[in-house]
Amino acid sequence: MSIQHFRVALIPFFAAFCLPVFAHPETLVKVKDAEDQLGARVGYIELDLNSGKILESFRPEERFPMMSTFKVLLCGAVLSRVDAGQEQLGRRIHYSQNDLVEYSPVTEKHLTDGMTVRELCSAAITMSDNTAANLLLTTIGGPKELTAFLHNMGDHVTRLDRWEPELNEAIPNDERDTTMPAAMATTLRKLLTGELLTLASRQQLIDWMEADKVAGPLLRSALPAGWFIADKSGAGERGSRGIIAALGPDGKPSRIVVIYTTGSQATMDERNRQIAEIGASLIKHW
């Protein structure tokens, strides 16, 4: 067993022997301040990774656009098919120029040779490549099948209805392509620590998230040296922004954090800054 596999296998073990965790309302004060600064709703939840206990939450059962955070769930569904012998990570998928959609920095470079399922998941999570996500959605049967996968996990809230990039439209009061912070946090925890996926697939999923290259201005910008984070960000229309993450000190994750916002007129930089400040408060009061 590799060191990384050992780390993920012992996530519940280490967490069980940690000192009790206590909620700190100071972080919620910052979440509410972010709402004021952005002029928009902000949803927040913080779960203990081992027990699933909610440590703090704000608007945990209000719907927010998922945006690209759905790509972690998508690759979880792909990995479940791999575990069941219905898919192979090494299978190569070929596609054409007509398949390319807006923001496809990886797939646009491989029109000639195609990409493997493993490479597509890596591109979808680490670079948020939209064509990679659409190609992977095709392998599982489309958005409705991802929703069905989530329902089978016990998540009857999260739903995907459309493809990239239309799913980022974020129309107010439109339930399409949305989740709730509580539902997303619980589902992410199941994917990373539950028995739904094999140990190898859980490790692969967290490795992809740990290698995320496009979430630097968010929670990662607030992390002290030595902290662990595996995350996936999302951005959408109407001032929408979000991030889902597993993080913790001492090089291992111990909490799940989900943050979503929508309806702001603020710039992307300002949305990023507010999420980073929430992260800084979380870490300060850990």
Results as ranks from 00 to 15, higher is better:
V157R: 08
K30L: 08
P224W: 03
A200N: 15
I244V: 14
P253C: 08
L100W: 05
M67H: 12
V157E: 12
T262S: 07
I140E: 04
L282T: 09
K252L: 15
M66K: 00
G248M: 00
A200M: 09
D83K: 05
L146R: 01
I229A: 05
E145M: 12
D250Y: 06
G114R: 04
I275F: 15
W227A: 01
Q274K: 09
N134P: 02
P181M: 02
A225S: 10
I278L: 14
R159F: 12
E166W: 12
I93C: 05
E237P: 10
T69W: 00
P224I: 04
F64W: 04
F58C: 15
A211K: 15
D177F: 01
D48Y: 03
E145I: 09
G248H: 04
E277I: 08
V101P: 03
N130G: 05
E119F: 03
V106N: 15
V101E: 14
E145Q: 10
R220I: 03
E277H: 06
A170C: 06
V257M: 07
I54N: 15
V82W: 09
V258Q: 01
S96Q: 08
V214Y: 06
D174I: 03
G248A: 04
D48N: 06
D212Y: 03
L146W: 11
W286P: 03
D177V: 01
A124N: 04
K32N: 11
R273I: 15
A211H: 15
A276V: 13
E237W: 14
L160V: 06
G242M: 00
I283A: 13
P253S: 08
W163S: 08
L89E: 08
A40L: 05
K190W: 15
Y44S: 01
A215G: 11
M66F: 08
I283D: 02
I256S: 02
E62T: 06
A124E: 01
M66W: 00
I283L: 12
A185G: 07
R41G: 05
S57W: 10
P253A: 07
P217N: 12
L199S: 10
R241A: 04
V42C: 15
P60G: 12
A235V: 06
G39S: 09
N152F: 10
H285K: 10
T131N: 04
L120T: 04
G52D: 10
T261C: 13
D48A: 05
A183R: 13
G154T: 05
E46Q: 13
M209G: 03
G248Y: 01
E87I: 11
S221L: 12
Q37G: 06
H156I: 07
S240T: 08
Y103C: 05
E164D: 02
D250H: 07
E175T: 12
V258T: 07
L135I: 11
S122R: 12
L282S: 14
G239S: 05
E270W: 15
D33K: 07
P165F: 05
E26C: 13
D177N: 03
F64E: 01
D250C: 08
A200L: 13
M153Q: 11
G216S: 11
